[in-house]
């Protein structure tokens, strides 16, 4: 088991190196320096600023010293917000984004698996067609359209729920979580249905029926485990998608989270911030992929046995 984790962590090393290197040089080769936009900066001031941000040093030494800082967990100072470090900015945006992603994932898993199960248990009936039609809508209705539409209907027309903010008004977390979770709920529903139908057609389900087990035991004990594995394996990639989706949702609902911070940094050419948050996102995604891989592997005794044998 530990060897599996270790080997997966080792695989993550080239990923992170690629991310840092690619981002670092992309950002450095961008036309226009970070201070070009400021009205008129005196040459001395500019030089002093550049010295402060180590921009006067050769590129490779900047690159190496960035790595040095990174390994100490230091993303460096922000270009755009003098006096604040990227660490502080990320720490400020992280809670809202984490919470949003968590609720969205919850929506995706609970709603999605519920709908998928309902569909799989009565294939080709209205209980199958209705959730699957809704899932199709969820997949085809992009977040960037669903968010505004929900705001328009529930926020502005019906005035049931607040249209923006995060944690300021009661119920203001509902619409963003639904918006972000909807598309993934749809994917999860389709995956669950597919996985369950696949499992239910297996010979060992027929064996369970031949043993005269109650239907609830057949579904809950014999089928669910195998049917859920594709969903678990999907959670890693889904999380990466949720992070990107948070760019849109946080913008639409004006949530002070990482996503909005990143988009703003991108517009402001706040290079250290872009670099820092990209690396941070990459680490998060790698960790989440690892977790979902491990969980999927753990659910499968065949893989689990092989893992145990290794350690």
């Amino acid at each position: 088991m530990w060897r599996f984790i270790a080997s997966r962590l080792l695989q993550a090393v080239p990923v992170l190196i690629t991310v840092v290197t690619l981002t670092f040089f992309l950002v450095r080769f961008a036309p226009g320096g970070p201070f070009d936009g400021e009205k008129t900066v005196l040459p001395e001031v500019k030089r002093a600023l550049e010295a402060q941000y180590r921009l006067d040093q050769p590129l490779w030494s900047q690159y190496l010293s960035y790595w040095g800082d990174l390994l100490h967990g230091d993303f460096g100072p922000s270009f755009r917000y003098p006096g604040r470090s990227v660490n502080e900015l990320i720490a400020a945006g992280l809670p809202a984004t984490t919470e949003l992603a968590f609720y969205a994932l919850l929506v995706a898993v609970v709603v999605g698996m519920g709908a998928g199960l309902a569909a799989a248990l009565r294939p080709n009936s209205w209980r199958d067609y209705l959730p699957m039609a809704l899932a199709m809508i969820g997949i085809c209705m992009p977040t960037l359209l669903l968010g505004p539409l929900l705001v328009l209907v529930f926020g502005i027309e019906l005035e049931w729920l607040p249209v923006s903010g995060w944690g300021d008004l009661p119920g203001d977390k509902i619409l963003p979580s639904l918006t972000l979770g909807a598309a993934y709920a749809a994917y999860v529903a389709r995956l669950t249905r597919g996985g369950m139908l696949e499992v239910l057609s297996q010979d060992y389900i027929r064996t369970a029926r031949a043993k005269g087990l109650p239907e609830a035991v057949i579904i809950g004990k014999h089928a669910l485990r195998g049917g859920v594995i594709p969903v678990v394996a999907f959670l890693g990639p889904a999380f990466a998608g949720l992070l990107c989706g948070s760019f849109v949702v946080e913008t639409v609902f004006q949530i002070p989270g990482l996503g909005r911070l990143f988009v703003q940094a991108a517009f402001n050419r706040d290079y250290t911030m872009i670099l820092g948050s990209t690396v941070f996102f990459a680490v998060l995604i790698v960790v989440f992929n690892l977790a979902s891989d491990l969980l999927a592997a753990w659910l499968n005794p065949r893989v689990r046995g092989a893992l145990r044998g290794q350690s």
Binding site: T18, L22, T23, L26, V27, F262, A266, I274, F281, I285
Partner: peptide, 21 residues
């Protein structure tokens, strides 16, 4: 392919658009 799969690609697309206009 495995390594590239793990990259936050969407962020790179955003980045590319920022950097190269």
């Amino acid at each position: 392919v495995d390594i590239l799969y793990a990259l936050p690609f969407m962020i790179f697309v955003v980045l590319l658009m920022v950097v190269f206009g």
